[in-house]
């Protein structure tokens, strides 16, 4: 488990402003964060409302599960960009000292490029899924909420995540191995 306390190592420091911190990107991160936190707030309110409805009014909210599940999709999809930007991830960094400067640099470049490929694949495939879901009118069981917008959110989240990784790769490349930490 990690909290923001581990969010202190940026791979490309010491060589000017990172592209990953350019203003439009920061705006995108902020907007994405705000919307994800909004989804979190809705989750909290719907859970509370459904407990209250069941206990106090003895009238369970049929289908509240579906709202909750889709809100969770939105929350996670929208959190992908901020998490990538803040580089909040569990890593195994025990062997960092052994793989050396070049090893760390190569590892940071390579792992980002591979991850970006997989995330673009996810975005592309989720896009097809969104089209499919829209064409066939896929919807939730109780409330008949259409599913395609939520696949579209995954497309957005994965694509932004991948793009952030590519920008980080560019930053690493510009910075060079010698200023890499």
């Amino acid at each position: 488990m990690t909290t923001d306390d581990t969010n202190t190592t940026h791979p490309a420091t010491g060589c000017g402003r990172r592209w990953a911190d350019a203003r439009p990107i920061q705006w995108a991160v902020r907007a994405s964060t705000a919307l994800s936190v909004l989804s979190l707030a809705i989750l909290l309110l719907v859970i509370t409302a459904s407990v209250v409805a069941r206990y106090v009014f003895a009238a369970p909210l049929l289908g509240s599960n579906e709202i909750l599940q889709l809100c969770l999709v939105a929350m996670v999809a929208l959190a992908m960009l901020p998490a990538a930007h803040g580089e909040q991830h569990i890593r195994v960094d025990v062997l960092d000292a052994y793989i050396g400067k070049y090893g760390r640099y190569a590892g940071d470049l390579l792992s980002r490029l591979i991850a970006a490929f997989v995330l673009y694949a996810l975005a592309y495939r989720s896009g097809l899924q969104a089209l499919d879901a829209a064409e066939f009118g896929d919807a939730t069981n109780m409330l008949a909420i259409p599913l395609w917008p939520f696949y579209a959110l995954i497309v957005l989240g994965a694509a932004l995540y991948a793009t952030m990784l590519v920008i980080q790769v560019a930053d690493l490349w510009r910075c060079g191995v010698n200023k890499h930490v």
């Binding site: 599940q69 969770l72 996670v76």
Partner: peptide, 26 residues
């Protein structure tokens, strides 16, 4: 592989039981 990627991503992040993660974190 593509099928696995998209179905498992969606099923993981729409898993009702996993709502406890953000809520207890909060």
């Amino acid at each position: 592989a593509m099928a696995l990627l998209v179905t498992e991503t969606y099923s993981s992040i729409s898993n009702y039981s996993l709502l406890v993660i953000p809520m207890f974190l909060l």
